[in-house]
C-alpha cells in the first residue's frame, strides 16, 4: 500500500500540472471576488472565509475525474481489482484518494493563508480557515472518488463528476464555513462545527472508498 501511495505521488509530481491548475484556479476565484464585491474591506473580511471555502471546494473538484480514468486507460485498474484478495479494493481507493489529496489539494490548503490576506481576513480567521480546509477537504476527495468511480468509463466525465459530487459536498461546506466564521465572529462557536466537520470527513473516509470500490467492480467492462 505504501508502494501505491509512493507511485501515485511520483506520478502526480512528475505530471505536475494537477496541483498547479488547482492553485491557479483557486487564486483566480479568490482574486476576482474583491473586484466583484467592491472595495468594502469590512464586507470582504466578513465574506473571506466563505470565499476561501468555495474556491477551495471548486478547485478540489478539478482533476478528480482522472482519479481512476488514467488507471483504467492503461489497464492498471484491472490488476488492482484482481489484487482484491490481497489488498481490499476499498483500501486501494482510500490510498489513491490520500495520494490525490496530497498532490492536488494540499497545495490549496498551503496557499490559503496568502489568499486570506487578499481578502483582508484577520489572522485568527486565516488560521481557522486553513485548519478547517485541512480537515474538510479530504472529505471532498473521498466523496469525489465515488463520482469518479461512477464516471470512470465515460470519455468526458469531468462535468458529470462535479455535478454528481457537488450536492454531497454541501454539508462539508456548511460546517467548514461555520467553523471558519465562528473563529472571528464572536457569538458563534468554533469548536462544535469544527468537530462536526471532522466527523463528516471521517464518515466519508469510510463510505467514499467503499462505495467507489463497489462502483469500480461492477462498472467494469
Amino acid at each position: 500500500m505504501l508502494a501505491l501511495f509512493r507511485r501515485e505521488l511520483q506520478i502526480g509530481v512528475r505530471t505536475g500540472n494537477g496541483a498547479l491548475t488547482g492553485v491557479l484556479f483557486f487564486l483566480a476565484v479568490v482574486a476576482v471576488i474583491p473586484f466583484g464585491v467592491g472595495p468594502d474591506l469590512n464586507l470582504l473580511a466578513r465574506l473571506g472565509p466563505a470565499i476561501l471555502w468555495i474556491g477551495a471546494l471548486l478547485a478540489g473538484l478539478l482533476g478528480l475525474e482522472r482519479l481512476f480514468q488514467a488507471d483504467r486507460e492503461d489497464g492498471s485498474l484491472d490488476l488492482m481489482l484482481l489484487a482484491d484478495s490481497r489488498h481490499m479494493m476499498a483500501l486501494t481507493v482510500f490510498v489513491k484518494c490520500c495520494a490525490h489529496w496530497t498532490v492536488n489539494v494540499l497545495p490549496l490548503v498551503v496557499v490559503t493563508p496568502l489568499l486570506g490576506l487578499f481578502m483582508n481576513v484577520e489572522p485568527a480567521g486565516i488560521l481557522a480557515a486553513t485548519a478547517t480546509l485541512a480537515v474538510g477537504t479530504p472529505a471532498i476527495t473521498f466523496i469525489g472518488a465515488v463520482g469518479a468511480a461512477l464516471a470512470v468509463a465515460l470519455p468526458r466525465g469531468g462535468l458529470l463528476v462535479s455535478v454528481l459530487v457537488l450536492p454531497l459536498t454541501i454539508p462539508v461546506l456548511i460546517f467548514g464555513v461555520a467553523a471558519a466564521r465562528g473563529a472571528v465572529a464572536d457569538p458563534d462557536p468554533f469548536l462544535p462545527p469544527f468537530l462536526i466537520l471532522a466527523a463528516l470527513m471521517l464518515f466519508f473516509a469510510v463510505i467514499g472508498p467503499l462505495a467507489a470500490s463497489l462502483a469500480l467492480r461492477w462498472g467494469g467492462d
Binding site: 505504501l2 508502494a3 501505491l4 509512493r6 507511485r7 511520483q10 506520478i11 512528475r14 505530471t15 486507460e73 492503461d74 489497464g75 492498471s76 484491472d78 490488476l79 488492482m80 489484487a83 490481497r86 489488498h87
Partner: peptide, 24 residues
C-alpha cells in the same frame, strides 16, 4: 490484457518494482 498497465511517467524498472510490491 491489451493494455500494459504501466505508467508512462515512471521508469520501466520503477513500474515493475511497484507491481512487485503491490502484487506480492
Amino acid at each position: 490484457g491489451h493494455r500494459n498497465a504501466m505508467k508512462a511517467e515512471l521508469g520501466v524498472e520503477e513500474n515493475l518494482r511497484f507491481w512487485q510490491e503491490f502484487m506480492g
